[in-house]
């Protein structure tokens, strides 16, 4: 069997879950498999997928980025304000916001790599600081409408295909190449697998680590702008749901929170699982509170299954057992 699939059994399982969920959903709501519905699902999955891209890289490197919600929110709000009140063209504002996201990621990365601050604390602190800054900055009042150009990127279509799905596909291919075919990917897996070994092997561990946070900041900022285009407006707290989903998508896709394993190909499946699930649950006619509980529980179970439990069962049933300690 292909080496990639052997190592990333969880990826296969995640896609299995996607298919299963599709079938279940189709059974519950027969109209689900219509072209329009699939399009809508893909668009929503793209948001999750793009946010989770950066998170996947950080997690493979044995870190975590908890600053995603407010990096996303900051980019969204600043973009609308700059475009409306300063009347700057989006062509300028977008790179500026990406640079801002990258800059915040740099701040996170330097704190983690050079000052040894645990990733959880570092990025959590960044998140809280950004939240405070934005609250002060906007005074809590709503922000102007999203510029038209970003609306096109978020809701426009190229023929039958939504623009954002195309963007997601391009980013997905780029991420896959980066992880599978480039030395950066090798360095990243080594870093996440065992930092000391990576260091002793000449891997530029600090640089690699920082780059993952920079990337995560940029994808969060990018997703924030696209979401603004989608909903027509930026609002406070719009990024909050994406912290959990970004980590869950990576985990469902087979990334271990301990680092060293996982792949963006799996995260894509994770994003699809989460999105389809969100679409399926309302069909069950539960109250919104109960929905949240079910949603959380299903994700928990999926992650538990896609990590050790199933892999071990799978190995016991079909594969050679691990020779624990045998020489």
């Amino acid at each position: 069997m292909n080496g990639f699939l052997v190592r990333n059994r969880a990826v296969l399982l995640a896609y299995g879950a996607v298919v299963l969920l599709l079938l279940v959903t189709a059974a519950f709501s027969p109209g689900f498999l219509s072209a329009a519905n699939i399009r809508a699902t893909l668009v929503l999955a793209a948001f999750v997928g793009i946010v989770a891209l950066g998170q996947t890289f950080v997690i493979i490197g044995a870190g975590i980025d908890l600053s995603i919600p407010w990096v996303l929110n900051t980019a969204a709000i600043l973009m609308t304000m700059l475009c409306a009140s300063e009347n700057l063209p989006l062509l300028w504002v977008m790179p500026l916001m990406l640079a801002l996201g990258g800059g915040i990621g740099l701040f996170n990365g330097v704190g983690v790599a050079y000052f040894g601050v645990p990733a959880i604390i570092m990025t959590l602190a960044t998140n809280v600081m950004l939240q405070g800054l934005i609250l002060v900055f906007t005074g809590g009042s709503p922000t102007p409408l999203a510029p038209d150009a970003i609306r096109f990127l978020a809701v426009g279509q190229l023929g039958q295909v939504p623009v954002i799905v195309v963007i997601w596909a391009v980013l997905g291919v780029a991420a896959t190449v980066l992880l599978s075919k480039m030395s950066f990917g090798r360095h990243l897996y080594a870093l996440g697998g065992n930092e000391t070994v990576a260091e002793f092997s000449g891997v530029p561990t600090r640089r690699t680590k920082i780059l993952t946070y920079v990337g995560s900041g940029m994808t969060a900022a990018f997703a924030g702008m696209l979401m603004t285009g989608y909903s027509g407006q930026a609002y406070l707290g719009m990024g909050d749901p994406y912290l959990f989903t970004s980590v869950a998508a990576a985990a469902i896709g087979g990334a271990s929170i301990l680092g060293g394993t996982g792949h963006y190909v799996g995260t894509v499946a994770g994003a699809l699982v989460l999105t389809i699930l969100t679409g399926l649950l309302p069909a069950l006619n539960l109250s919104s509170g109960a929905l949240q509980v079910v949603y959380g529980a299903v994700i928990l179970i999926t992650v538990a299954l896609s990590s050790d439990g199933v892999s071990a069962t799978w190995a016991a049933l079909f594969g050679r057992r691990k020779t624990q300690g045998a020489k």
Partner: peptide, 15 residues
């Protein structure tokens, strides 16, 4: 310090 146990021999050699 020397070996990434969960990685392949190939990936270790060329790291």
């Amino acid at each position: 310090q020397g070996l990434l146990n969960s990685m392949s021999v190939r990936e270790n050699l060329t790291l």
